[in-house]
Design a protein around this nucleic acid. Structure first.
Length: 176
DNA sequence: CCCTGATTCGC
DNA sequence: GCGAATCAGG
């Protein structure tokens, strides 16, 4: 084999430089490159003498831009991405139950608009409920705290795994 | 507890 | 040169 991408090729180094100077964290870059840990990225960054970045104030979390300062001319195409072992492919609409579309409407309304995240900010412990058109840059994930062992947050899990038959037209009484 | 980068040190 | 383990911190 040539090299299984486990080497710092020129291309990977360039990408590393780009992403690093772009403000992405080491772990994010590692996920982007694939087959490397954040330690590897950090190590390489230091070896390249790229450390520090734009570090005026406190580093670490403070140097982590929440909104990606991406150029408006860079739409950032949504392609199937791999984070760790999880492959996230574009999903047309509902991830599970098709008949739940009615419910989904309500669900979408019930979701706090605040914590939605892009794929870059999506972490293992976050809800992967897709929102919006995967082909558009505006595509987001729910991003709320996911239930341990499940890809969704409490709210979305209840919807995703709810059998259609369970959906009563009549509303339940919510009293204890 | 989640995350961040920095450094060390065996390979 | 490389990166896991560790350190130091927000």
């Amino acid at each position: 084999m040539v090299d299984a991408g486990v080497t710092w090729t020129d291309e990977r180094v360039e990408l590393l430089k780009k992403l690093w100077s772009d403000g992405l964290s080491a772990s994010q870059i590692a996920s982007e490159l694939g087959n490397v840990t954040r330690n590897a990225v950090i190590g390489k960054v230091h070896r390249l003498g790229l450390s520090g970045r734009a570090k005026d104030k406190t580093d670490a979390t403070a140097a982590r831009p929440r909104k990606a300062p991406r150029a408006p001319s860079a739409p950032a195409p949504i392609a199937p991405a791999v984070r760790n072992n999880v492959v996230i492919a574009p999903i047309p609409r509902t991830p599970v139950v098709e008949e739940a579309s009615e419910v989904l409407a309500d669900v979408d309304m019930a979701i706090p608009m605040s914590e939605r995240v892009t794929i870059m900010d999506l972490r293992e412990s976050m809800c992967r409920w897709p929102m919006g058109d995967p082909t558009k840059p505006e595509f987001r994930f729910c991003g709320a705290r996911s239930i341990t062992g499940l890809p969704y947050c409490n709210h979305h899990a209840s919807v995703a795994y709810q059998p259609v038959a369970d959906r009563r037209r009549e509303r339940k009484v919510v009293r204890a």
